[in-house]
Amino acid sequence: MKRFLQKVLFYIIIIFVIVFIFDLFIFPNNNNQMTQKFRLLQDTNPTVLVLGNSHLFFGINPDSSSFNMINVADKGRKIETDYIILKENISHLSNLKYVIIPISHYTLYSFKIGVNEKRVYYNYYNLKDYKQSILENSLILNEPFRELIKGLIFKDKQISRLGWRANAKIYDNNINETKLRVTQMETQINNINNIKYNLEIIDKIINICEIHKVKLIFITPPYHPDFYIYSSKKSALFIEHTLDSISVAHNNIIKIEGKKLGIYNNKFYENSDHLNVNGAALFTKKIDSILKLN
């Protein structure tokens, strides 16, 4: 029995050790778009930093800009994470002059960050503020193993050199999909606690930018006209008022309203609220010209 237990334990320990090595040292360095963006933050010294969620991840292409710009926005990113990324990186970004952040339904109405998002940003962006317990931090326990292995083997980053992801599709006025997207975005519009919490985070972002003398550009992303037809007027107005009051109260804020940039045609959109390749080129050019004026 002793020999049996020794052998089984030895075998299990070896497997555990190998698994831990992968979890702690190998998978966090995987080649995925998140580590690529983290490296952009570490290895470049941009003038313009794009944060935010999918609206800017797909919508701003640094290669179309005349500024030294990087795009580290990501799908589903919450403003709290934008703040933590900014807080942990702003001091070494010595050339930074502008930070671009979207103010949208997703920014103001979304819940606080959850354990899964914390895990991913702790591992791939090295955000110490998001450190949790070993079980919650473990990639191997919480992420699809197949994806982790793929990330290890394949260099499949699916983003441009400066962090932008291209959408080739053209919007086809799919009303049902638009209604669904609007509904999903507006499920939390009456949750006062979420709004209050997210506004506090925005205040923190403003402060940190003021301290580092960086101009903050708040953008309401451009949406297709279909989106405005089906979205709630109340929520859109609230976003506009919020943006107005913030920009009036602070000198270092530039306000850009995507709705007023004249990007209405289907050929610029992938779906009702995301720009495609054409839209990103146009939108980036427009931002570029606004930045030049400031």
Binding site: I15, I18, F145, R146
Partner: peptide, 10 residues
């Protein structure tokens, strides 16, 4: 073992 872990976790 690793094939099992790989596919079970996936």
């Amino acid at each position: 073992s690793f094939m099992i872990i790989y596919y079970a976790a996936s």
